[in-house]
Structures are given as C-alpha cells and as structure tokens.
Design a protein around this nucleic acid. Structure first.
Lengths: 241, 241
DNA sequence: TTTCTTATTGTATTTTATACAATATTATTA
DNA sequence: TAATAATATTGTATAAAATACAATAAGAAA
C-alpha cells in the first residue's frame, strides 16, 4: 500500500492570495491587480498573491504581498482557508500564465487565502510589480483566473466571523474620523441588512471605544454630522476576550 | 527581483492532520496514533495525518485518514488552519521519521489541519496503518512531534466557532441517547464554564430538535434521568442559516 | 421507614434587541 | 428674512433572551 503510492504524494508550489477589502460610498470593494503578463482569455484581473519563498511562512508571504501593494508594513490579516483542488489548474491559460510569471512549469498549485482590510483612500501601488492595481466593486467583479471568484465569496463570510472575534477590525475600513451614518452603512454592507437609525445610535453609544468628537462635517448643505473616532487604547483596556 | 528569487519558491509536500475530538465522563479527548516507525526521542504519539496524493484535494485526504481510523466514510470535518512555518521541520528526529515513513527526503512540510468529531465508544483502528490508536485526555497530552501540540490548541478554539455556525455538530460527540446532564457536561467541557442547571434545562427545552424520550436510565442507584435524542430532520427543517 | 443521591422544575430580575416618528440643524432658495 | 430641503439626532414602550436563585421529586440503598 505504502509502496504503491509513495510516488503519488504531491510536491507542489504553494501560494498565498490576498482578499483586500475596502469601503467607499456605502459599498465594499476589493483590491484586484492586473497582470504584467496578460493571457489570451482576457481574464487579467486577479487577486494579488505570490508563491511563497523558502525562508518564509504563509503569513510572511501575505505580509510581503500586502506591503508591495499598500506600502504598509504589517497589515492586519487573517488566514481563512486553503484551496487545494487539483482542478484549480485545469485551465490551460492559467497554467500558461503561471509558467511565464514564475518561470516554472506548475501543474498543481495550492493557495492559502488571506483576508485583509484597507482604508480605501490610501495611496496604492507603491513600487508594485503589477501593471495596475484597482479597487473593484463587489457588485461588479470580473471573471478571474483560478478559483479567485470563489475565494472572494468565502472571504465575505469570513469578515463576519472575524468581526465577531474582534469587532475592532471594522474600523480598519474607515478613515480616522467618521460619522455615525458612515459606520452604519459599513455595518449594512458587511452584514447585508438594514439597521434602524435610532437603535444604531444606541448601539454605538454603548461602545466605549467610540469617541464622539467636537468636530463636525463641513461643506455639506444640510445639518452637519458629528465625527467619531475609534480609540485603540480604550478598546484594548476594556476588551473581555 | 523576480530573477533573484525564482529558485527560492518552495516546492513542498503537503499533509493533512486531523484533530478528532471525543467526549467521555465529562472530558474531551483527542484521538492520537502511535507510529509504526518509532523515533529515538520517544515522541511516538501524534495526530493522525497523511501526505496528500496527486489526485486528491485536502478534504479528500482528510476523509481518507479518518476512514482509515474509524471506518466511517464521510465524517463531518472542518478545515481550520494551515501550518506553514519553515521551523516545523527543525527537529531532526521529525525529519528522520518523515524520511522513513514516506520514503522521501522532506525538508519542508506544510500541513492543513482539520477538526472532526467522533462518538468515543465507536470501534476504532479498522485496518489501520498505525501501531496503536488511542484516546488521550486533553488534560494529559504528551509532547508530540512537529507542531501538533499547537494544532490541538487551536482546534479547541475552533470547535466553538464551528458550533456557532452549526450547533448540531455538538451531537456528533454524544451517543444516540443521552441525558440532560451529559449534554450539559459536554457544553461545560467545550466552553470551559459552568452552566446553571435550571437555566440549562430551559435552554434545551427551547431546542425543538432535541426530543425527550420515554426511556430512562437503568441501573443507577438514584432517580433515573430521562434520555433525549437529537432529531436531524427537525434540525434541518427549522434551520435558519 | 429513613437516608442518600441525583433529577426536575418556576419565578423574578436584568440585559439586550426591536419597533417606531418627532424635532433639530444648517445650507439653500424663494 | 422666511420657507424649504436635506440629513442628524434623540426616547419610550415592548419583546426576547440571559441570569440568579432553591425547593421538591424519584428511586435505590440502608
């Protein structure tokens, strides 16, 4: 039995793929990259990712990918699932692209998927190896190579799990100052449901790590909303888990 | 940059390791196996696992490992994390064992960890490839090779996440008939806290998928407790998610 | 019959979630 | 300057869920 199979154990390259979420105008967006080495099928937008190096683990590889994209050194990230189907590389175009991009014949490739969050107004593409880096609305995702569409699907359920464990990660998606309505719209986008305005205000009034500021919106042609900020120190102090 | 590194991309074997939980006498246990090919350091108990084959994905490999252990064809299981540190194979004993067990020089090995649940009174070791298969109390785990101790740590937080998504998995740990006290002790073991007896009875009275039976305990020298069973059909019917 | 051991049950309280609409503020417009 | 338009802010009543707490029931053993 062992002898029959010993040559069938796979030895494979391993990649990380990063689902980076951003939030703008009430909608969640995802950071996609355009390949430098296009393929004939035109599916040139994909999740940012990389094969992992000898000396690094998957977390380090994901941090490296994110640093290349955003310039941020150690972004918050969460490994959420490995994708290992032999069918991942069933599309010849994808395999052809792998060979060009990595100068290696790669017939099987497993990937470890990461979720990360980013303020959407941040300057991107600092010394990036990609042709283009672009925010793409969730409602308007292109067909992507490999199983990247499926990976994104699963990332969207993962952010809710993550927020349950650590509610503070939500605020990685917002600027330093934000209004109650902005926060509410973010919750609505993440949980795919509407929140009653009054009850939502009560909810945030009970978050002792949300500090109401004196400062208000400017340049709006209606009553200006108060800004809030997220207070890391108070959050860590009062954290139960 | 690409040229500098292209030979540094790892090509690695990939394994699955299965944390199989069982429950008995108020305690969680874990299924460990004893290697057929012992190593000098005596750390011969480990998590059941296997390298994955060419034609299978990680889920299939985990199912195969579990089938070998328990004889059950498609056990409930959940992939919960990949362990990828280059340091996993820093112990020469572990590497030596890998070479013997798999007839391959393996210098790096990533593993995908799975959680599964099993009724502890089930007959084990059907045609198993291991020397011994044994339930080991959580309070009394040995030092294990690789990062298996850490994997078990993380599995124990994972079962709570899993139960939140699908409360029915809890009942995989109990026999077909069980008393309210047994169920309560299982909850206490999983969540590491005490439950008030009266409130717990109210809680299970509200679980419409828990069916109280006429049958009672026999052979106990005190008031006999009623048995309950878990009703899959009613569970699926009333499931919201 | 008593004792011992565990099973079963109810009520009051607190906390949390939900439903629901009037008033406040500010820029713009008439 | 008053009216308008647009969004911000706020409270109360109700329902549901979680928590705290102890007396009685059943059955075997002594």
């Amino acid at each position: 039995m062992k002898e029959d199979r010993e040559n069938q154990f796979i030895q494979t390259f391993v990649s990380v793929d990063c689902v980076v979420l951003g939030f703008e105008k009430g909608r969640l967006n995802i950071l996609l990259v355009e390949r430098n080495t296009p393929t004939p099928n035109g599916k040139d937008l994909k999740l940012p990712g990389s094969l992992i190096f000898q000396e690094e683990d998957a977390d380090e590889a994901a941090h490296r990918v994110l640093k290349e994209l955003t310039g941020i050194d150690r972004m918050r990230l969460k490994q959420f699932k490995s994708f290992t189907s032999p069918q991942r590389t069933s599309n010849p175009d994808d395999v052809a692209w792998l060979e060009i991009a990595y100068n290696n014949k790669i017939s099987r490739l497993i990937t470890i998927a990461y979720l990360s969050l980013c303020k959407i107004d941040r300057k991107l593409n600092i010394a990036s190896k990609y042709k283009k880096v672009t925010w793409c609305s969730l409602d308007d995702l292109p067909q992507m190579p490999f199983d990247h569409n499926q990976i994104i699907e699963e990332a969207l359920t993962e952010i809710r799990n993550w927020a349950k464990i650590d509610p503070a990660i939500i605020f990685e998606l917002l600027p330093g100052k934000f209004t109650a309505a902005e926060l509410r719209h973010l919750y609505e986008a993440i949980y795919c449901k509407q929140y009653d305005v009054r009850n939502f205000h009560k909810k945030i009034a009970n978050m002792e790590f949300l500090i109401p500021l004196e400062e208000k919106q400017k340049g709006v042609f209606h009553r200006a909303a108060r800004y809030y900020k997220f207070d890391k120190v108070s959050y860590k102090k009062n954290r139960v888990n």
